[in-house]
């Protein structure tokens, strides 16, 4: 993952260099500005999926995706996040908000991200049991403790949680920096998460690109609630205490507007899970990958 992080950083720096020539406006662009008091509605239709790191977890299909936002003078609704913007200025803002925590999505097929279609297999849906040839005496995954895997189908139900948070953002023409901290206000996992993200928008001819790097800390309480194994999950005494840690992600998207209402959208994202999570017998992958390609219609 280190190599891929470096590759992502080099890619972003190259893009950033390009953007110095391609972008010279300090105002928000067409893609991230919205008229006050108007709904922004878009739907992306295409093909894509997000991998599921859980043992026997269903891949999350990305077929029809909404982009819904409404902004008042200070209040906003943006893709299921409801918030209030404090101290907005041209180049920075602070907002407080509530939003669903998406960790639960891996445990169920339904998620706001998804469409109700059944995928039986996907390139992103790795096998639930290793298929590498077994060499006697050599474990298949030497970095992961040898432990019996536990299927997501065999553990007790995890609940959806609601997070409340505060986010600070700093805007420049060539990048957008944000830092946030969220806490569970629904009493489900009773923990916190927080992180930083830097996004680089840039243009190349008619294509609009955004690439970002992010780091998110997920607390032990959060990680253990979703990925720990308690006596409620297993009939044996083999419990597992998941621990908090930092997850790193790289995201890039490209869009090409070819008419007033239509555009092409391509997205790719990879997240490196932290060891306190992927060491869980419930987790089989160290990364989560998300890809999508399709068409966007803006109403």
């Amino acid at each position: 993952m280190k190599a891929s992080c470096y590759a992502a950083l080099i890619y972003i720096l190259m893009c950033h260099h390009l953007s110095a020539y391609a972008s010279n406006s300090s105002d928000c662009g067409e893609t991230d500005c919205i008229n006050v008091g108007e709904w922004e509605l878009g739907v992306a239709i295409g093909i894509g999926a997000r991998s599921n790191p859980l043992v026997d977890g269903d891949v999350l299909p990305l077929i029809v995706l909404p982009d819904i936002a409404y902004y008042g003078e200070s209040f906003y609704f943006d893709n299921f996040e409801i918030g209030y913007q404090l101290l907005p200025s041209n180049n920075q803002s602070v907002e407080v908000f509530v939003k669903p925590n998406t960790e639960r999505a891996y445990f169920s097929f339904w998620h706001p991200d998804n469409v109700l279609l059944t995928f039986t297999s996907s390139p992103l849906d790795g096998p639930s049991t290793p298929t590498f040839p077994t060499i006697p005496g050599v474990p298949n995954e030497p970095t992961k403790p040898v432990q019996k895997e536990i299927s997501v189908d065999d553990v007790s139900k995890r609940d959806w949680a609601i997070d409340a948070g505060v986010r600070w953002q700093y805007y420049q023409p060539s990048y957008r920096l944000s830092a946030f901290i969220n806490t569970d206000v629904s009493g489900v996992y009773k923990g916190t998460n927080g992180g930083v993200n830097v996004a680089f928008p840039w243009r190349l001819n008619e294509w609009q690109f955004t690439s970002s790097l992010g780091a998110v800390y997920k607390s032990t309480a959060l990680t253990n609630y979703y990925y720990g194994i308690s006596i409620a999950d297993t009939k044996s005494k083999d419990t597992f205490q998941a621990k908090g840690g930092w997850q790193y992600s790289f995201n890039t998207s490209a869009s090409y507007q070819f008419s007033d209402s239509w555009q092409i959208l391509l997205r790719f994202e990879i997240t490196q899970l932290h060891s306190g999570m992927y060491n869980s017998p419930l987790v089989k992958d160290k990364q989560v990958t998300s890809v999508f390609s399709g068409f966007v219609y803006r109403f």
Binding site: C28, T31, D32, C33, I34, V36, G42, A44, R50, L62, L65, P66, D67, A69, Y71, Y76, D78, N79, F80, E81, G83, Q85, P88, S93, E95, F97, P112, D113, R167, Q169, Y171, R176, A199, T210, S253, L265, R267, E269, S290, F292
Partner: peptide
């Protein structure tokens, strides 16, 4: 107003 989240942040 500038959106506080990038479009398609629901992904």
């Amino acid at each position: 107003r500038r959106r506080v989240k990038l479009p398609w942040s629901i992904f």
